[in-house]
Design a protein around this nucleic acid. Structure first.
Lengths: 202, 202
DNA sequence: TTACAAACCAAGCGCTTGCTTGGTAGTGTC
DNA sequence: GACACTACCAAGCAAGCGCTTGGTTTGTAA
């Protein structure tokens, strides 16, 4: 199911094939940007990670910043598609919210985790123009969250303002990447449950 | 009251006088590191911000990284003292928790906000040794949170594990610096209230 | 076999970076 | 009035940075 979503995005050209040189470079870039930060990562690091010369990078991307932008764009495309699919399955607002929490935790801590962290924490390294472009894409994603939260509020199960609740959750969930270990005792389902318990919505 | 805490720390040598060249440099450094990130901030930027030559920086600090470290150390000292004072006033666990939330929100979004953001988001730029040093200082700070949360749990008003709750709150609260505007409609008390509402502890 | 584009190499340019060096002005102390 | 100390300047070095250039290999399809 996840692969189908990915394949659709690949064949529609929104996300590059992870087998292609470009796709492989983006995967390595996400990991390095996450580990060392965008600024501390040099094009020589990137080139070494995929086994080419530093100059050859610029056959695939115009500038180093374009690599960062591409990582962010493709990540947003992927997780928005995932999120949409997750929310479409459920009808009950609380169940929708749980699905979103679970899905975002998976995005943050799963395979796309490195890229997600880059998306969240490296936006300062983008030029204003590029930043604006990414923000537009994020709006759709955030829309999914807001309508779910408004549903929960309408059901009388949320006291916080939906927009504030979303922002508090954004921080709480994305921060998990700094402490949560997927290979530890706590599963992603456990973690999801803890979040819902915090909201007293379990 | 706040100034007394600051003065104590200054006279004990734990925090440098904001009037001194060193102190002024640290203030500007915190702002620049926050705005542009540590890596994107050059020693020439720092020097220009306090009106001296770039080389003169190294009369006050051995390396650029030492500046980052000092910003973090002094910030931790300051907010721990504040936090301790806030928690000492209250007896009821929920009231203690509210005080901590309020205090951390103030640290994140008030005068020390820039330095706090640096503390939270720029630790990757520290060498492993320096990182370890900062982590030790953070443990005491986190201890205050944990005992308060355990108190709330013992009172039957918290279902999440205290350690998990703290981490979720860390993310939620520190993330406010990216979206909350102290000069907007919502006051810090309002924001504190929204957080407590999210936890259904208002 | 030829044609051609995609993928890459080897070399290095121009610039910025953190940091060093040797020296100077101002201030307080005995 | 000699000494010491803090705070700074002016100049620049060595290393590393993003990126360019001209040319070579490799895969594909006519």
């Amino acid at each position: 199911m996840e692969n189908v979503a990915l394949q659709n995005l690949v064949s529609s050209g929104h996300v590059s094939d992870p087998e292609s040189p470009r796709g492989r470079l983006l995967l390595k870039a996400a990991r390095l940007f996450r580990e060392k930060g965008y600024e501390r990562t040099t094009v020589r690091d990137l080139a070494a990670a995929v086994g080419i010369q530093s100059g050859s990078i610029f056959h695939h991307f115009r500038t180093k910043e374009d690599i960062l932008k591409a990582v962010m764009q493709e990540t947003i495309q992927l997780i928005t598609a995932r999120m949409q699919a997750a929310v479409d399955i459920e009808r009950d607002p609380v169940a929708q919210l749980r699905a979103l929490v679970r899905c975002e935790l998976e995005s943050v801590n799963g395979e796309t985790g490195e890229a997600m962290a880059v998306l969240v924490y490296e936006w300062r390294s983008l030029s204003p123009d590029n930043r604006a472009e990414i923000l537009v894409m994020r709006d759709h994603y955030e829309g999914l969250w807001l309508s779910a939260l408004e549903g929960v509020k309408a059901a009388g199960k949320l006291e916080t303002q939906p927009s504030v609740a979303r922002r508090l959750l954004t921080g709480a969930l994305s921060w998990t990447s700094t402490w949560y270990r997927p290979d530890g005792r706590m599963t992603l389902d456990d973690l999801t449950e803890q979040v819902m318990l915090m909201l007293k919505l379990a």
